[in-house]
Design a protein around this nucleic acid. Structure first.
Length: 201
DNA sequence: CCATAGATGCACT
DNA sequence: GTGCATCTATGGC
């Protein structure tokens, strides 16, 4: 996909990414995966977005030009990958939430040895792991970097479902943030954001 | 199948 | 110190 594909609002890019393929090339081999679930994040007016409180070291890539990866670390152990959307200076992105592995299943499985076929790339951190994406990929250009976006098989509007975001406080806002392909087993399970008990020292 | 708790490190207040 | 754009293991039905 050309960079211009991502130079739009993430709310337009997100549904358009469903059914398209990502190809991750590494020393271990090539993995191709078809996107079945994504989530849109805006800059301002989106309390759930990392960019909501303005630019900071972590989210700098979101404010840059479209078509670059924003990969962040969370929960002390997981990486999640986004593609930056919108014009430069407009901090929008689409989180890659789930995919079906089409090629390189053995390579992906070597990164997630205990995974079932259904769970191999079901969820943003699982998908990032299956594609071997981490902090070293933050800021990578999708036009010439290790993760490429291919045309795949675009999904018709009738097959697309929308709903609240997963694991984000305030996810019930009136905007259709999350998009997935209807009837696909690899779409991640919905979990409402939860407040956790304070830890002991 | 479903629900819950713990892991674990960093960004930010 | 608080809160994560999460996942896995475990225990109950």
């Amino acid at each position: 996909m050309p960079r211009s594909f991502f130079a739009r609002s993430s709310l337009d890019v997100a549904p358009d990414l469903l059914g398209r393929d990502v190809r991750a090339v590494s020393e271990a081999g090539v993995v191709r995966a078809r996107l079945v679930e994504v989530e849109a994040y805006l800059g301002s007016d989106d309390p759930g977005s990392h960019a909501f409180r303005g630019q900071a070291p972590r989210n700098t890539v979101m404010f840059g030009p479209p078509g670059h990866l924003y990969v962040y670390f969370t929960y002390g152990m997981h990486w999640c990958a986004n593609v930056v959307c919108g014009r430069e200076g407009v901090a929008e992105a689409v989180l890659l939430r789930a995919a079906v592995i089409l090629d390189g299943r053995d390579v992906a499985l070597s990164r997630r040895p205990k995974s079932t076929a259904r769970d191999l790339a079901r969820g943003p951190a699982r998908l990032a792991k299956a594609l071997d994406l981490d902090g070293s990929d933050n800021g990578a250009d999708i036009v010439c970097g290790g993760l490429q976006f291919l045309a795949g098989q675009p999904v018709s509007a009738a097959e697309i479902r929308t709903g609240p975001r997963v694991g984000v406080a305030g996810a019930g806002a009136p905007t259709p943030w999350r998009y997935w392909v209807d009837g696909v087993a690899e779409v991640s399970a919905y979990r409402a954001a939860v407040v956790r008990a304070p830890r002991k020292a």
